[in-house]
Amino acid sequence: MTTTTLQLLKCGLRFDPPTLVITYKDWKANKLRRRSMPLRSFTKHSNISSAIKELTENKRHARFVQLLPEAQLHRLLTIMKDKLCGMSLEVSIARNNDIDTLDPNEDLNKVDPETLTRKKLQMDSTFEKNRKKPGDPDFQYNVEIDFETELGRVETSGWDSGDGSDPEF
């Protein structure tokens, strides 16, 4: 890996012209550096996921873009897009905080694809935290746990009580 000697310290945006800016520590050279990556073709109509794909495939920027968590990249570029659409920074940040918060009652079948991607990225961090994968000392391919049978379970989930959502059956 070429990125192992680089450590991301800060990331941010410059609005004019649209630029992604990071500061990082180059441990090999023992220097603090800043890198500006202009978002040249980025407009208020840009698709965030495509823009990220472009950045990560850009030969000059890829090793720096890789330092940023994907969720952070989505957030930064969405703020940039909001700005280009004329939204105030305050409103945009509040909106992006909402997007990055999981609401257990929100129906994700109904959100736009970009929001869904970001909700999934939030869930992925929990997924990775609890994950047992090949190579981990306690990894087993087949994990079978017999939980209490339906009859033996004492608590109710409270999820069955009628709000009329199951009228067909």
């Binding site: 997924f127 609890n130 994950r131 391919y141 994990v143 079978e144 746990i145």
Partner: peptide
């Protein structure tokens, strides 16, 4: 759990 593998194979 797809994360820790519980009962997925089953």
């Amino acid at each position: 759990s797809a994360s820790d593998g519980t009962n997925v194979v089953r």
